[in-house]
Write a protein that binds this DNA or RNA. Sequence first.
DNA 1: TCTTTATGTAAAGTAAGCTTTACCTAAAGG
DNA 2: CCTTTAGGTAAAGCTTACTTTACATAAAGA
Lengths: 66, 66
Amino acid sequence: MKNRLKVLRAERDLTQAQLADLLNVSRQTINAIEKGKFDPSLPLAFKAARLFGLTIEDIFEDEAVE
Amino acid sequence: MKNRLKVLRAERDLTQAQLADLLNVSRQTINAIEKGKFDPSLPLAFKAARLFGLTIEDIFEDEAVE
DNA sequence: TCTTTATGTAAAGTAAGCTTTACCTAAAGG
DNA sequence: CCTTTAGGTAAAGCTTACTTTACATAAAGA
C-alpha cells in the first residue's frame, strides 16, 4: 500500500514525530507506514484523513491485484 | 466503526459466506465486522470498496472522537 | 419430520499493527 | 568540534485482525 504521508507532512512542515503526536501513535509507527513496512489500521487511516482534510483514498493507494 | 455491509449485501443478495469468498476472508470475519466485533484492515476495506464500487467512506463510518 | 441454508458465536492459534526502549547516521548550527 | 534535530531501524512485548474448527438456532421447504 502506497501513501502520500511524507508529501503531506512536507506540505505542512511536520516531522514524523509531530505527525505521530497528532495521530496519537508512536514515531516508529509513522516511519514504518511511510516506509511501507506495514499498513495502518482502518481507524488510523480515518484519523489521518480527518487530520489532513482528505479522504482515505486521497492518502492511501491500494495496490492489491486480486 | 459502523458499516453498511449488511445493507450492501442485501442489495446484491449476497450471504455472509458469499461476500467472504469474494473478499478472500472467512465467513466469521465478515460476521464479526458486521457485528462490530472488530474493524477490517485497511486492505480489506479497500477490497470491499472496490467490490461494491464505492469509497471506503461510503461503506465505513468512523466514530472516533479524539 | 428431516434436511438444508443463513446467521451467530466461542475457543485456540497465527499474523499484523503498534508500543517502548534503544542505538545509529546525517545534517545543521553554535 | 559538539550538540541538537530528523530520520532509520531493531528487539521484545502487547493488542487486534483473521483463521480454523465446531456447535447452536431459526426459517423454509420437501
